[in-house]
């Protein structure tokens, strides 16, 4: 942002345009934060009877360069709630941090694990109130005593929509049809894992911004189970 200071009379000599006064990033910097590290991504979550399965690829890129080939895009919010993040890594990390803080406080006051919808709503509050400033898409999924396994999607504008399964990130567009074809309501846990791994693998095979491994998380009333599938052992591709 260029700042005009009427009180200072001396004209300021601009050699380089900075992102903001005092900010070390130059506008023409290849690492300019607005271009930033972004999780061009494939993430998804599916609800099944008794829990949810979350999945994500592991590629994080800055422009063309793979900044991290084994990144973790699924973040734990509570013992039985996780979030898949996509969009700007900085934004979604900050958001997750805030929500972890508020959800933690809430859990202490409540004296029992918080509801998945509560977590999703906290994300929504931040996403909606700062929609002009954020590039963040979230899939919140988990299990709670009252409503069982649930998946909530919070897309760019900050709406909150419950869905039986959600997919987001740059890769999601390539597999929308595949998911419509292979998704069946009432799948078992094993079938859900297969559905997630297969879908994400196909997205990674077609989306340049997605790739690497597939990480999956299964959440049931018994807790959280984390698995991964190495990049050379995918059901399809790379």
């Amino acid at each position: 942002m260029e700042v005009i200071a009427p009180r200072s009379t001396a004209p300021r000599r601009e050699f380089a345009k900075h992102v903001e006064e005092g900010c070390p990033y130059r506008d023409d910097d290849v690492m300019a934060p607005e271009k930033g590290v972004s999780t061009g991504t494939t993430i998804m979550a599916v609800e099944f009877d008794g829990g949810v399965v979350l999945g994500a690829d592991t590629r994080t890129s800055t422009g063309q360069y793979v900044a991290n080939r084994a990144s973790r895009k699924i973040t734990k919010m509570d013992e039985r709630i996780c979030v898949c993040r996509c969009g700007s890594a900085a934004d979604t990390q900050a958001l997750s941090g805030f929500v972890q803080f508020y959800l933690g406080q809430h859990a202490v006051e409540l004296g029992r694990p918080p509801a998945v919808k509560t977590c999703a709503n906290l994300f929504k509050i931040f996403a909606y109130n700062n929609k002009d400033r954020l590039m963040a898409g979230m899939i919140v999924a988990g299990w709670d005593e009252k409503s069982g396994g649930q998946v909530y999607n919070i897309p760019l504008g900050g709406s909150l929509i419950r869905v039986p399964f959600a997919c987001d990130g740059s890769g999601s567009g390539y597999i929308a049809g595949l998911m419509d074809k292979t998704y069946r309501p009432g799948m078992s846990k094993a079938e859900c894992i297969e559905f997630v791994v297969n879908s994400v693998a196909h997205a990674m095979a077609r989306d340049g911004s997605s790739g690497g491994m597939i990480r999956t998380v299964v959440i049931t009333k018994d807790g959280l189970e984390e698995t991964h599938m190495e990049g050379n052992k995918l059901p399809f591709g790379p």
Binding site: M1, E2, V3, I4, A5, P6, R7, K131, D132, G157
Partner: peptide
């Protein structure tokens, strides 16, 4: 921004 200063860029909303 300090008081008395103003931005040359308009504030934009979505």
């Amino acid at each position: 921004m300090a008081p008395g200063q103003y931005s040359a860029d308009p504030k934009r909303h979505t």
